[in-house]
Amino acid sequence: METYLLVLTVFMIIGSVIAIETKNLLSSVISVGVVGFSLGIIFLMLGAPDIAITQVVVEILILVILIRATISTDNTAIEKHRDNLPIVASLIFFGLFLLFSYFAVHDLPVFGEPVMKVASRYLETGVRETGATNIVTAVLLDFRAYDTIGEATVLFVSIVGAFVILRRQGRKGRGEKDVEKVGILEDEDIKKNFEGF
């Protein structure tokens, strides 16, 4: 079990090295897809089917969004001049970070034996108190519903932000309607502008 997990994690690290160092942006986006899908397999092996489903589907959407950002633009990342000083400084910092994290992970609970103080109560009383047999859903929507409502708010705000940023630019002319400017497509607009598509 742990061997498989190690192999998959090393595979993720190789994928992310390729994603970081490739010059072509489309190749690096696809390498991110490799990392995400192997993460989904790891979740499935660790006894978390809910997250595995969500991770696989979200990974597809991340690929769609990132490919849309790279496909119609200048998709090579050639860097002619490098600033050496920030890179060296950051590498020293990362070395120190890894050193301290190597000592810090020894204080964590041993892999395979979690503490589960709060979670054992959830597991004991979850089915009786909520009636839901999926304990993850019971935690998500009953015991800790505040987190979920915060999550819904964050998703809502980020979507509104994307809408506002991508709306049609420019100040409003005197004879123009508001509707065109905030990015909502009317039926006439679709007819007028998408006849060629």
């Binding site: 979200v58 993850v136 998703l155």
Partner: peptide
């Protein structure tokens, strides 16, 4: 296994998607 981090990570994944869309826009 521990259900609590699973519930928190589930929300975190979807938030990541929304934030990614904002950054790409």
């Amino acid at each position: 296994v521990d259900p609590l981090p699973q519930a928190l990570v589930l929300t975190s994944i979807v938030i990541g998607l929304g934030v990614l869309a904002l950054m790409v826009s």
